[in-house]
Simulated scan of single mutants.
Amino acid sequence: MERPCLSRRHALLLPASAAALGGLAACGPQDEGFGTAAPVRADDGSISLDDVPENASTLVNFGGEQPFVLLVRGAGDDLAAYSGYCTHNGCALAQKEAELDCPCHGSKFDAATGEVLVGPATRQLPEVSVVVEGGLVRRDG
């Protein structure tokens, strides 16, 4: 009798393997879509300060590099910058008005301060160093 190419033991492992792979895929890096608020592309590595509205926050992709950056502008040149990724599991955040929402596990962050509003994230968004020179904003370093 010829031995089958797939043994019963291996056949029984297939459903468990498929479930494990599905679970890993769900926890992997998320797409770069930010909900309905797509990041502003700064392909040359800088963005005009005029493209960042006063008293608002804007997600920016500096030169196609990761991570995306959340720019928070007050009045004039008052500018702060935070990571655009959740501190819980590293998923890309979606901007919804005054908050950033994590599509993976439901964390929410204040878009003006980076503070956690709703968990499971427990750490605020890390600051990102940016500089403003000649009306252009770029990552520092």
Rank of each mutant, 00 (worst) to 15 (best):
Val60Asn: 13
Ala98Phe: 00
Asp31Leu: 13
Pro39Val: 14
Ala20Tyr: 07
Asn89Gln: 13
Ala18Tyr: 11
Glu65Pro: 01
Glu99Leu: 00
Pro39Asn: 06
Gly28Pro: 03
Val116Tyr: 04
Gly76Cys: 05
Leu70Tyr: 07
Glu99His: 04
Val137Cys: 00
Cys5Ser: 14
Val69Ala: 09
Leu59Cys: 13
Gln30Asp: 08
Asn61His: 11
Lys108Trp: 00
Phe34Thr: 09
Ala94Leu: 02
Gly106Asn: 01
His10Thr: 05
Cys91Asp: 10
Gly63Thr: 07
Pro4Asn: 13
Gly28Asp: 09
Pro67Ser: 10
Val118Tyr: 04
Ala19Thr: 13
Pro53Asp: 13
Ala98Val: 07
Val128Tyr: 02
Val137Trp: 00
Leu14Ile: 15
Ile47Phe: 08
Ala20Thr: 09
Leu117Ala: 07
Ala75His: 07
Asp110Thr: 12
Leu13Asp: 07
Gln66Cys: 00
Val60Thr: 14
Leu70His: 09
Phe62Pro: 03
Gly23Glu: 10
Gln66His: 12
Lys96Gln: 11
Gln95Trp: 02
Glu115Gln: 12
Pro39Leu: 09
Cys27Thr: 15
His10Cys: 08
Val40Lys: 09
Ala56Met: 11
Val132Ser: 06
Ser17Leu: 14
Gly76Asn: 06
Gln30Glu: 11
Asp51Ser: 14
Asp140Ile: 00
Leu13Ala: 14
Cys102Gly: 06
Gly64Ser: 07
Gln95Tyr: 02
Ser17Ala: 15
Ala94Cys: 10
Glu99Arg: 12
Pro29Ile: 10
Ser83His: 10
Asn55Leu: 14
Asp51Val: 09
Pro29Phe: 15
Ser83Cys: 12
Val131Ile: 08
Pro120Ala: 07
Val131Gly: 04
Arg73Ile: 07
Ala38Asp: 13
His10Asn: 15
Asp78Leu: 06
Thr113Lys: 03
Pro53Ser: 15
Ala26Cys: 14
Val69Glu: 03
Leu6Pro: 04
Ala121Gly: 06
Glu65Tyr: 02
Ala42Met: 14
Asp140His: 12
Lys108Thr: 10
Tyr82Met: 05
Leu71Arg: 05
Leu13Cys: 11
Ala25Pro: 04
Tyr82Gly: 07
Leu93Cys: 04
Pro15Asn: 10
Cys27Asp: 11
Gln66Met: 11
Gly33Gln: 09
Cys5Val: 14
Val128Cys: 08
Ser48Val: 07
Cys102Asp: 06
Pro15Leu: 14
Phe68Ser: 01
His88Met: 09
Ser129Ala: 15
Gly114Val: 02
Leu13Gly: 12
Pro39Asp: 04
Val128Trp: 03
Val116Glu: 04
Ala19Asp: 05
Ser17Phe: 13
Glu133Gln: 05
Leu6Gly: 05
